[in-house]
Every structure is written in structure tokens, then in C-alpha cells.
Design a protein around this nucleic acid. Structure first.
Lengths: 168, 168
DNA sequence: GTCTGATAGTTTCACTTGCAACTATCTTAG
DNA sequence: CTAAGATAGTTGCAAGTGAAACTATCAGAC
């Protein structure tokens, strides 16, 4: 077939689905808390990890441009949601962590977002959902996206790893 | 669990995957043909359908804002890829269709994009791929996105349908 | 016929974002 | 030590995009 049915074209479908799902979720973090997606990603990353982490870690693990993360962090600091912790060893970088208020916001946001996610996925059975998540994981691995399964170093220090590999 | 693992959060994963897939595909339509996503969507919609259709149809079926489609169409007309056909009955709207050159571009783009899509999906088995497409379809239906299965009227005239339903 | 409201498409404006250039800091070679 | 290059993060700028205002046209009420 020489034609291409856009409705059967996976890249288009993924784009559209992602946009639609984002829109559904933004009701929670944007309308309710005045957060945009990059800001939410910073909060989610810091909130989930127990240890503080750098802007670069957030940028790489969420696959978001570092300038976008930089601006999101600035806003969150102004709002008292995130704070910088100076790194005495390397003063170029800062560790980021949620403030007490930031953590409160994070904890109140989580159940809302999970509920939205469940709503969106409610058209799938339990088995279908597990299958879907499995397939997403395969695609992520195939595209070399961080999955959270790999050792933290592979995200936090991808450049260093690359250098090591080049040396070895 | 009070925490939320971003790497297990489907909305985030969909967003990231869609962005990554788009980036992989853009090599073909952007680097090679100087097209952006909205322009490609217009071409794909006009190319697939045998009958000319309006800007609004493209906008609704691809779920892209009408001003974005308007700008894409303008560019494509300037480039001689798309042409407007005046509608004698309703002069507010135009039918759009690919020019001869536009169709040539479309036909040369299709195999490239299909090859890219196949590459991206090559980490899935045949059965997994079928399953994945099935699940995407379920999610699309669940979110009321056009799937190409419904009668064309439901996309071309969604407002009219809504009005009818409200009346009935 | 005119008036009102709806609709297709365009344009203006404000905002977001990615790229590239920049600053400050660190590391390595000599 | 200094010089050169790499790196973390910031910022200026240009391009893209959505919302809303706008233009032109149509449909219906009267």
C-alpha cells in the first residue's frame, strides 16, 4: 500500500494520545497549583527520590532540555517549593530538594494525578494495562530512554560513563 | 504507596516516548523536506483521503489547533504543495488538496516514514505490535479521539452532531 | 429585505521552548 | 603555577503555538 493512514500511524497516534493525556492531567497541576509540565517534572523527580539531585539529573532523567529545567527550578525556588543546596566539592552544581512546603504540595498532588491516570486507563482491563506497560517499557528500552531500572549512574553520569567506555 | 515513580507514570512515559519518536521521524520530513509537524499532518491527511477536505477537517481529525493548521496551509500553498479549491456553495471555507508536486512529495515521504516507524517498533514482536495497536485504539476511543473508524461525518461535523444530540 | 447569531479561516499577541552563547567552575596537561 | 578544555547552569534570542480578537460569509428570525 502506497498510502499512509494517519490513524494507523503509530507516531501520530502516540503524539495525539500524549497531548490528550497531558491536557487531562494539567487540570490538576496547572489549574489547581499553577504548575506547568517542566515544573511538575522537577517536583516529581525530587519528590520520588529520597536523595537530593542536580538540575542535570532532572534534565536527563525526564528528557527535558536543561534550559527548560533551569527556568522551572528558578520559578519553584521563588515560590518556595524547591531549594538549592550548595555543593562544597563542585561549586558549579547545586543539589535540589523540595522544601517542606514543596513536599506537602507533592504529597497532595500525587493522589490526584494517580486518580486521573487511573481514569484515563480505565478503558483497559487489568491484564491489558500490565501488557501496555510492558510494551511501553520495551519501546523505551528500544529508544534508549531512561526507565528507572538501570543503575542511577547511567542517568546521573551518562557522560562520565561514555568517557569511561571510550577509554576502556 | 504515597510516592509516585515518574518512570512508572503512564502520562509521563507517553509524553516522553511521543517526543522521542517525533524526533526520530523529523529527520525525514524536516531535515529532508523542510516540513514541520503541522505541515506534515496536513499533507498526510490530504494525501490519504481521496476527496479534498477543509482546513477544519484537518484540524479536527489531527487534533491540531485551527490557527496552527491555517499557518501550515499558508506555507504549503506558497511552496506549491497544496492548493485551495473555492467552495461555491459556502464561500467561507475552501477545500484543500495536494498539487501534483504535493502528491509526489507525499508518495516519496511515505516509504521513508514507514521505514522509520518500523525501525522504532522493531523491538516488538508481530504479536506485541498488534496488541500495542489494539491498546492504543482502546485508549483513543476512551479519550474520544478520532480513530478513522467512525463515519467521516463524526469528525467533519462534530459540532453539528453535538447540536443534534442536544436537540434530541 | 434587515438583524442576529453562528461558522471558516486569519491574524495579533503573549507565552513557552530549544538553541546557542555566556559565566563560573573544575580538571588535566605541561 | 598557567593554559586549554570540559562541564553545570543561566540567559538572550528566534521560532512555534494557543487563545482571543477579527474578517468574511452564511443561516435563521422576523
Amino acid at each position: 500500500m502506497k498510502n499512509l493512514n494517519l490513524f494507523r500511524f503509530v507516531p501520530f497516534r502516540m503524539n495525539r494520545l500524549a497531548a490528550e493525556i497531558s491536557a487531562a492531567l494539567s487540570v490538576e497541576y496547572r489549574d489547581r497549583y499553577g504548575l506547568d509540565i517542566p515544573e511538575w517534572r522537577v517536583i516529581a523527580t525530587l519528590g520520588f527520590r529520597e536523595t537530593p539531585c542536580t538540575a542535570q539529573f532532572v534534565s536527563e532523567s525526564t528528557h527535558t532540555h536543561k534550559s527548560t529545567i533551569s527556568r522551572a527550578v528558578s520559578t519553584l525556588i521563588e515560590r518556595g517549593i524547591v531549594e538549592r543546596v550548595e555543593n562544597k566539592v563542585d561549586r558549579r552544581e547545586y543539589s535540589l530538594r523540595l522544601t517542606r512546603e514543596g513536599r506537602r504540595l507533592y504529597l497532595s498532588l500525587i493522589p490526584r494525578l494517580k486518580r486521573r491516570e487511573a481514569e484515563i486507563l480505565s478503558c483497559l482491563t487489568e491484564a491489558e494495562l500490565r501488557q501496555f506497560e510492558l510494551l511501553l517499557g520495551k519501546l523505551e528500552s528500544g529508544l534508549s530512554l531512561p526507565t528507572g531500572n538501570a543503575p542511577a549512574a547511567s542517568v546521573a553520569r551518562s557522560d562520565a560513563v561514555a568517557k569511561d567506555q571510550a577509554r576502556g
